[in-house]
């Protein structure tokens, strides 16, 4: 039996039994340094259940790094990250799913890709099949189930990556530029899938460089610059009245000069 919340076991389509305002992730004063260089510093963010948080900012601001810290792929150098008030662990990682910018497809069929992760997460044979079919149907990939995953188009592979992530029934979906290098049609399909997941109660944290996507997808916006949170808050308010010059410049499509985090 998977370690994540037992209430989530029966179906991908179930509405998640979570309190709306429950903080899933509380990051307090986290920093990350490597070889004496700080890539993130003094970052404090709260990710709430059923909310969509979008991380924006220039290249090198630390957005993707922050996702990896949230997911426990790398440890923070300073500060602490809590999952529902507890320290990050393998259990908390199993309640999350992450989709990377370049989808990593196993050298197997679409269905085998789905079943692999479900097997790793402890789902038994019939449950694996049921969840895989549900997720593929949700992603519109049912007809491709027997195809090798690596011959799918970029958009289809990213949809499969999202479906594979959702099949395990995560409470939080972490997305690192999931539509980078996709055409508008494929972007739309991936966004629909993310929206459908969110409507079923899954919280989303997404990194994007696409301002239009941020406007469409964000409930909460976090603007990172040089490894620090330059501005964060309600997305609509931030888009309407940006406070920091950097965010104003970003929204205006202007370039601005980075400063060092340390």
């Amino acid at each position: 039996m998977p370690k994540c919340d037992a209430k989530r076991q029966s179906s991908l389509g179930e509405v998640i039994d979570s309190k709306i305002e429950l903080p899933l992730i509380s990051a307090r004063d986290i920093g990350f340094s490597l070889n004496g260089q700080w890539f993130l510093k003094d970052v404090s963010i709260t990710v709430r259940a059923r909310k969509r948080t979008v991380l924006i900012g220039p290249n090198g601001a630390g957005k993707s790094l922050l996702l990896r810290l949230f997911h426990g792929l790398i440890p923070a150098s300073t500060g602490e990250i809590l999952w529902k008030g507890q320290k990050l662990s393998s259990n908390s990682q199993e309640c999350q799913a992450m989709v990377f910018q370049r989808p990593v497809m196993l050298r197997r069929s679409v269905m085998a890709n789905m079943r692999f992760v479900l097997g790793v997460r402890g789902f038994a044979g019939r449950e694996q099949t049921r969840r895989a079919k549900d997720a593929l149907e949700m992603a519109g990939l049912t007809s491709l189930a027997s195809r090798p995953a690596r011959v799918l188009s970029g958009g289809e592979q990213q949809c499969l990556a999202v479906a594979r992530a959702l099949a395990c029934g995560p409470e939080l979906l972490l997305l690192d530029e999931p539509t980078a290098s996709l055409d508008p049609a494929a972007t739309s399909r991936v966004e629909e899938l993310i929206t459908a997941a969110h409507e079923r109660g899954i919280a989303v944290v997404m990194v994007t460089h696409d301002q239009g996507q941020a406007r469409r997808m964000a409930d909460q916006l976090v603007f990172l610059q040089s490894g620090r949170v330059a501005e964060a808050g309600d997305a609509a308010a931030m888009f309407a009245t940006p406070k920091s010059p950097a965010l104003r410049a970003w929204l205006d499509g202007r370039l601005f000069v980075e400063t060092e985090a340390n």
């Binding site: 792929l73 990593v104 196993l106 050298r107």
Partner: peptide
């Protein structure tokens, strides 16, 4: 595969088996 396997929480044994298969 490394980062994706880490995200999935793949055990050491399963990792070797999956890599050999792929």
């Amino acid at each position: 595969y490394a980062e994706q396997f880490a995200s999935f929480g793949v055990s050491r044994y399963t990792r070797v088996r999956a890599l050999l298969w792929d």
